[in-house]
Design a protein around this nucleic acid. Structure first.
Lengths: 250, 250
DNA sequence: AAGTGGTCTAGACCACCTT
DNA sequence: AGGTGGTCTAGACCACTTG
């Protein structure tokens, strides 16, 4: 009595996923609501466990749902931070002894952890951008409301920042950009390259990303007014946590 | 004689995926190379078909591999277009009767299809941005080398563009921005919001996206020198096809 | 203790692509 | 024709969370 599917339409698991997606997008199922579980789908549609799992996996991979072991599958929420690309890096920000990060968070509690400051031989790409074979590297992770949202790695030409607070875990008021100013090489021009992709396993762990969450990879190079590169900052952001904003004129 | 897994380490499928990923990232397996198939993995690791599939699904969902029905699973290639955010929208571009798009593609063959121009009642968000309840809407798809890479939807306040070439499929030399100039409301200032997420099913189909490919969603608002919003452009880009570049000063 | 998702086996039939 | 991935069934045991 094995039922042959014999369907020329879309597969069962996809039709089930479509139905659940519609209920999420229509607002019938809201942020944090529990979806029908594997057992419920098996009973409701008379399908095998693997097929029910496959349907739920579609939504998880689309970033619309998040599974919680032993509990259920839940509608995912999306509350991004607005990150201003141009406005935030104006001298007014870091000139007054404030960290750039303040411009983003609008008062939400943020923390920095996993700070590592090392002196390294630059990789090929980094060396090409900074025109320096030896670099100081600052790695750290940013969290908002206790949740990790961004990994950042900054590279500085070693000969430029040697002996400055940039080589220390604590960089002092105004952060590294203020220190670059102290060194007589304040950043004046920035270039940002923005990509999106799925996270590497390490990134997924460090950012505590559920399945189906891409990362935004931003590569920012800072130049002095004379066009000398003084910093390369590679950022990996949880795409569910960020909206990047850029303002410019024609 | 069923072997109990009894493993406190990572699951089998994940270890297999890790191994394959390492071979891809190390360059042992290169762009377009064929990965070991389901049958090969079953034999090599003495596992069931579903487990082999699960291992390959990890790589597909990470965007590192692409399955081809009846053929195999292949290492994916990544050759993005560089899209300049600020430079490309300078007046020099569209002032000379050239389309903005030219600045991106650097001579690569591109086409536009699925052009739809309609007059519509604006949705809530669009109406709020454009300060207009009625809008002209221009939808189209961009392809490079015959492959779709971007979906775009532009909204214009109806009262502003009524009767102009902006309401026609063909907008003439310089595109819609030149026509806005003809109307006495040339765009002078732009704001772009950049997000990343997994595609909706419709987007995945129209962009022909393989699994594990996020989209970059860019929302651009164009304002006149007087601060009047004249266009809202919602773009959905294949993240494997684009690098966005923004340049700005401190 | 019961329910949930996570992993895995051992089959099966199908559509599709390559040879 | 034979191999490939795509879908599906019908079980099983596990770890985890919740009541």
């Amino acid at each position: 009595m094995s039922e042959s599917p014999v369907t020329h339409e879309s597969p069962i698991y996809r039709r089930i996923a479509d139905g659940l997606r519609a209920r999420i997008l229509s607002g019938e199922l809201r942020d944090g609501d529990r979806l029908p579980g594997e057992n419920a789908l098996m009973a409701e549609h008379a399908i095998a466990r693997a097929t029910a799992r496959q349907a739920l996996a579609v939504l998880v991979n689309e970033g619309l749902a998040v599974p919680r072991r032993g509990s259920g599958v839940y509608v995912r929420l999306f509350k991004p931070i607005r990150r201003h690309g141009s406005r935030r890096l104006s001298r007014e920000q870091w000139g007054q002894g404030r960290s750039i990060w303040d411009a983003d968070t609008r008062g939400r509690a943020y923390t920095v952890d996993r700070v590592e400051v090392t002196r390294e031989r630059a990789g090929e790409d980094v060396a090409a951008v900074l025109e320096s074979a030896e670099v100081w590297v600052r790695r750290r992770r940013y969290c908002i409301d206790g949740r990790p949202v961004q990994l950042a790695t900054s590279y500085f030409p070693a000969h430029l920042v040697e002996g400055s607070a940039i080589t220390l875990p604590e960089t002092g008021p105004g952060g590294v950009y203020a220190r670059l100013g102290d060194l007589g090489t304040p950043p004046a021009h920035f270039t940002e390259e923005v990509r999106a992709r799925m996270p590497q396993p390490r990134e997924g762990v460090l950012l505590d990303l559920p399945g189906g969450t891409p990362v935004i990879a931003v590569s920012r190079t800072a130049y002095t007014a004379g066009g000398v590169p003084v910093e390369l900052n590679e950022m990996i952001m949880d795409s569910a946590a960020y909206v990047l904003q850029y303002d410019f004129d024609a």
